[in-house]
Design a protein around this nucleic acid. Structure first.
Lengths: 107, 107
DNA sequence: TTTATATATCGCAATATTACGATAATAAAT
DNA sequence: ATTTATTATCGTAATATTGCGATATATAAA
């Protein structure tokens, strides 16, 4: 079917999975790293930095925005992207929670 | 095309993305949580616990095994699954590294 | 006002993922 | 030896994802 059966899982499970899914792509990892390697909010030299077409980058940025992980601010004919610090911290907490709780049964 | 262009990214970016992609599914999140809620390595009451068909669970377990995050030990006609503690810790380090380093530029 | 630049959206092709029924494989129980 | 139970694999349908060319949109520059 290709559809994830979200109904049978908790909101927390779905939320965590959605976030990790968005993060689970090398282009989006690279974009996040690139944004953070700049001192200020950077605009789309991302396209030149990463070897993907402009529409593709734009789409990846959209997905990162969909989980509120980055913000884009219009500045003239450009758009400046930066990390949403608040969300970033929230995700860190979610992940540490998950990794702490699921750490009892091992072999 | 549907294919991720892994060639243009670093091994580290691809590795992290692969791990996060495997984790980015609610069924696999639920499976990991369930394995850890048991005291001992448990076998496929997972199928009963989570509302997915047995082949589907088996496939998800395979993906979790593909990144070495869980181990399956044959025990009679059953297979006992448990977390690979070593890998689990490695992933934690990877994630914390990523989240620490990419934490400078925000808005 | 025309042109250039930057970004987003549309539409599509190729491939990947999710899920499951059918079935195989294996071991325990009878 | 046959049956039952547990898990894995195969094949397939439905849907999602990745990537890009073409094009729209919007602002800056000329």
């Amino acid at each position: 079917m290709g559809v994830t059966k979200t109904q049978i899982f908790t909101a927390e499970q779905n939320e965590l999975a959605t976030i990790l899914k968005v993060l689970g792509n090398p282009a989006r990892i690279a974009i996040l790293q690139h944004i953070n390697n700049q001192k200020d909010c950077i605009c789309n030299d991302i396209v030149e930095e990463i070897g993907l077409a402009q529409p593709t980058i734009s789409q990846h940025l959209k997905e990162l925005k969909s989980i509120d992980l980055i913000k884009g601010e219009i500045s003239g004919k450009r758009v400046c992207y930066c990390i949403n610090q608040k969300k970033w911290q929230e995700i860190l907490v979610l992940l540490n929670d998950f990794f702490d709780k699921t750490n009892l049964n091992y072999c």
